[in-house]
């Protein structure tokens, strides 16, 4: 069985050979992404969970445990970034980027509200206060999640707040959030969870909202890819910084995907194998780096 970290250490020959050419790929600008945001509004409070409540009542305890665990990292992750994103908003370089980054912060709050509604109205968490539900869901998370969201992300945001003009800090934040958290972890989870629920005709309200969350995140990842292409793809030192940050965080991210008590090298989520999950995550990351124009270079396991 192959882990995400092992896949990343192999590198991607396609990425290496074509990085210069791929770095020329023309991407949407922050102004275009802002205008897209205006056209793609949705309301987290309007999703109909009627059929979802019926489905949930029929689920086995094992199905419920799996979904509560899987979705907990999304719920808490959205809560974390709603506030921790402020440093990047402060680091805007022109008014187009300022406008887009402000929309992303609003998106994160909307996603947190959507997951809170799902846990309250479908899962049926008993805690009356928002904070109490967050505390309950936090019990599901593992140490790798804490390292990524409570340490790496918080530290990157703190450095940007201290000095919004710090380019290396901005590379660290965009790599941590847009490339690793959203571009690798969230999109991978969304792909398999949505596929499972759609194939089985389950939780249609949740799928509708989750699809909207994913569409928002595609816009965010498009911004991160654009910014890194313009900066890390055009400056050798910043490119190296991006590679170093990935080398630090990819092994941590791989740990977030491992179910509680499972063998990290051989597990299953909703019937999908760890090879399928890690392969999708690695493929997503390596293809995106090709668009940025910076190859994936991971330290050997003994050096990490």
């Amino acid at each position: 069985m192959t882990t995400l970290e092992e896949l990343a250490q192999q590198g991607d020959p396609g990425t290496m050979q074509e990085e210069g050419q791929a770095g020329q790929l023309k991407l949407m600008t922050p102004q275009q992404l802002y205008e897209l945001w205006e056209r793609q509004h949705w309301q987290s409070q309007e999703i109909d969970f009627t059929k979802d409540r019926e489905d949930w009542a029929r689920f086995s305890d094992e199905q419920k445990d799996t979904l509560v665990w899987l979705l907990s990292s999304f719920f808490i992750g959205e809560e974390r970034v709603t506030t921790q994103f402020s440093g990047l908003v402060m680091a805007y370089e022109d008014e187009h980027e300022e406008s887009f980054l402000a929309t992303q912060q609003v998106d994160e709050a909307r996603h947190m509200q959507f997951f809170d509604r799902f846990y309250r109205e479908v899962v049926g968490l008993e805690q009356e206060e928002f904070d109490g539900r967050l505390q309950r869901v936090r019990e599901e998370l593992n140490e790798a999640f804490t390292t990524l969201f409570d340490e790496a992300l918080v530290e990157a945001g703190r450095r940007l707040i201290a000095d919004p003009g710090d380019r290396e800090a901005k590379v660290d934040f965009v790599t941590t959030y847009h490339m690793v958290i959203e571009g690798t972890l969230a999109l991978t989870g969304q792909h398999f969870i949505t596929d499972y629920l759609e194939e089985n005709g389950l939780l249609p309200g949740f799928v509708e909202g989750f699809d909207n969350v994913a569409r928002d995140e595609h816009r965010h990842v498009a911004y991160g890819t654009w910014w890194l292409q313009q900066n890390a793809g055009a400056d050798e030192n910043l490119g190296r910084r991006l590679q170093e940050k990935l080398g630090e965080l990819v092994p941590v991210a791989a740990g977030v995907l491992v179910p509680p008590g499972a063998d990290p090298t051989d597990y299953e989520i909703l019937g999908y194998t760890s090879d399928e999950v890690n392969g999708f995550a690695f493929n997503s990351l390596s293809r995106r780096l090709k668009a940025i124009g910076v190859p994936l270079e991971m330290p050997a396991a003994s050096e990490a």
Binding site: G14, L25, D195, H218, S284, R288, A291
Partner: peptide
């Protein structure tokens, strides 16, 4: 890199294929 050979019309791409840049 996404498993789609040159010469493949868009209609023939599997439905689980995704955008290499943003994941759409």
């Amino acid at each position: 890199d996404g498993g789609i050979p040159p010469g493949t019309p868009f209609d023939d791409i599997p439905k689980d294929w995704f955008c290499p840049v943003c994941g759409a």
